[in-house]
Design a binder for these strands. Structure first.
Lengths: 155, 155
DNA sequence: TATTGTTATACTCTATAACTATA
DNA sequence: TATAGTTATAGAGTATAACAATA
């Protein structure tokens, strides 16, 4: 199983797959680009005294309509029991409110407070700033990239 | 500050920026694509009884040459004090070894064991599988995407 | 004096399981 | 019985600060 020797790409980067397909190579580059921005996102959360998860929660909430806890758990890819604590801390800071639901008294709806909505807006603006690697591309490349990604994601 | 109304894109997705530039929109799509794979990566780590951080550590180590703890801390975007515990657990499972450095007795070099290298190889292969959104693109789109990303990242 | 890695501390995230109050 | 959310628990990640050994 270890007899399939690494190819040149492996040796050059130390973190690539062997004989990648075209889509596989594109995915590897996308993953690298996204990971390269992790530090920026962590620093952004820190700047607002939020943990990355708390920032993700604010980002996942809808400024227009309350959202059930269970939906937030899904958006954050974590267990419902974790959401309790994450929301507790956001609520203690006055960024989020728990409300009752209309037709099922078991579910709790999460709504952003006014300040929560403001913070979310600033965070969203900062997160959406493209990394230099993309901002520095020629305009034609930027458009082609956007169009291909729109097709890929059905956006 | 909240008087700048959301645009149509905002209302459609609930998580976009206002009047995004072309590069900004491309970045938003890339970020969405990467985030959509988070669950897959967590499940992959779980499948090997690793935490996501432990999987990241294995992935960041060089199968060919030992790496200092400090370099791993940098690759994982975390404090050096965290690396101690992460490496402790990997070493306890026989996936990583601590060795002394040649010319500075303060630094500890991290080397993959044979099993660690095997696990790392399997993980790398699985992580590099492109998501369906990319695999389903026409071949011409895949090539164009790869070529633009190569230019962006200087790869 | 400065640096590498460790330890100590405190807090957050994480999953599992047991519990409640509804349905 | 089943579901939404909470609580309890234990393990892991996180940053800060203090420390030992070495440079």
């Amino acid at each position: 199983m270890s007899s399939l020797a690494s190819n040149i790409s492996d040796m050059a980067t130390g973190a690539q797959t062997r004989s990648p397909t075209v889509a596989g190579e594109a995915w590897g580059l996308i993953h690298r680009l996204a990971m390269s921005q992790k530090g920026r996102f962590v620093a952004l959360a820190h700047e607002f005294d939020l943990t990355p998860m708390q920032m993700g929660a604010l980002n996942s909430l809808d400024p227009g309509a309350p959202v059930p806890m269970s939906e937030l758990a899904g958006a954050l890819h974590c267990d419902a029991s974790n959401v309790t604590g994450i929301v507790d801390r956001l609520e203690a800071r006055g960024l989020v409110e728990r409300r009752g639901a209309e037709h099922d008294r078991r579910v709790r709806m999460l709504a952003l407070t006014e300040e929560g909505a403001r913070v979310r807006e600033v965070l969203a603006a900062r997160m959406s700033e493209p990394p230099p690697a993309l901002a520095g591309l020629p305009a034609a490349d930027q458009r082609a990239l956007r169009d291909i990604l729109r097709r890929a994601l059905g956006a």
